[in-house]
Design a protein around this nucleic acid. Sequence first.
DNA 1: GTAGGCATGTACCGATGATATCGGCATGTT
DNA 2: AACATGCCGATATCATCGGTACATGCCTAC
Lengths: 242, 242
Amino acid sequence: MPTRDTTDSPRRRIVEAAVELLESGGPDAMSTRAVAAAAGMQPPAIYRLFGDKDGLLEAVAEHGYAQFLESKRARLNPAPEDPVEELRRGWDTVVEFGVSRPELFAVMSRATGSEAGAAHRAGLEILHGRVRRLAAAGWLRVDEELAAQIIQATGLGVVATWHATPAERRDPALLTVLRESMVAAVTRAEPAVPAAESGPAPAARALRAALPDDSGALSDAEQHLLAEWLTRLAGSGGTPPA
Amino acid sequence: MPTRDTTDSPRRRIVEAAVELLESGGPDAMSTRAVAAAAGMQPPAIYRLFGDKDGLLEAVAEHGYAQFLESKRARLNPAPEDPVEELRRGWDTVVEFGVSRPELFAVMSRATGSEAGAAHRAGLEILHGRVRRLAAAGWLRVDEELAAQIIQATGLGVVATWHATPAERRDPALLTVLRESMVAAVTRAEPAVPAAESGPAPAARALRAALPDDSGALSDAEQHLLAEWLTRLAGSGGTPPA
DNA sequence: GTAGGCATGTACCGATGATATCGGCATGTT
DNA sequence: AACATGCCGATATCATCGGTACATGCCTAC
């Protein structure tokens, strides 16, 4: 086994030193030399291991996601009762993480846009997973993708605003207000699909029932075929997911 | 008159060159030397005029606020009818500015937190002014300060999320949904989202989420086409009219 | 005419991100 | 057992960055 995270692999040492410097002295303090020195290595080691400073930042972000997932698991351990409450808890966890660890959160958020960013991929993955579960239970009032973006936007915004506000004017109510606002924007008052059942069958029944005579989105032929499929799905009996 | 903005004062030349470089090549392209060269001056001139690179950034932010106010005045010229609509328009203007000029917006947002930042002060000033007018008309459902922070958070969040989303997944509905959500959180009007959404859209979303990879009831091709239709149906609802 | 600011221009400093190059050490082969 | 190979660490170095000291010049004041 060549390079594995055996608690003191060079990679891990460097990343942890980088996080330490980042959170103690801001982004400027996380220079390649300082990181290398703090990890007891030479500057080129960083480039050999991470290729680039952006590579280091990505590794730092990934480390942050790992720590976040750990804290989340510890906090959400009791049980995710209903999906909406799970959404609240998840959002709170993210925001709390962003509030308590500003620099790391900033790095994690920055790695997003342009290219790959395996770390941020993982973050979005869990978010979309949560949204998907919400959708499966019939709670979503908007598209899945849009719901995920709403959650992301409110979280990002509240954290950024929190840190941009001069400490003495910070109001914890901001967090709860925006959370509830986000829940209201994403979820419906009641699930569109009965909670008791799961799988495609009940959703298919609900959709078939809700299908108007002429939805603008589909042609007559499409609509007809869709209705037929829905009938098949509705009768096929739900395959409950794991 | 010592140093006034006489359309080609050194200050203005430098700031405009800085903005140009910032928006064309990202923050890294805005080096002191590049700015000085682009403005036809020597590097030390920047430090004489702005004292610091942060000084330059602040001046850039102030320039951005000036341009923003200009565009705002042009856009809000018709008339601010009622305060809530004024809030919508103002928020839209900010978000539109942030969407269309990412780098400049980032610089303007960054200058916030810690110390003075005359530029950002001005920005907060107009925001608080709008909120105050809202409060005076009796529309606020929360504290003025909290309202301002809600507005700020939603705006910041939506802009950040917009730019963090891979272009092809961007959904303009995000802007309107979050705007209405913010209006609902800030004002005591009726639930600004028109109606508890009904019809096929939510059911379609639920079904799409619940659709297994391989339901025995449909063939692969059918399943694929069904997913496409469901996406169309899922997106057909929810966007409030302009 | 001369002396004193004051802005400009040159040269420079330390630090940064990034790389080339060298030496050692383990490994794997013959 | 001797040799070759490839990987890991260390030193030295490069170009550029933000920032500054110093000298030069010009205009003004006496």
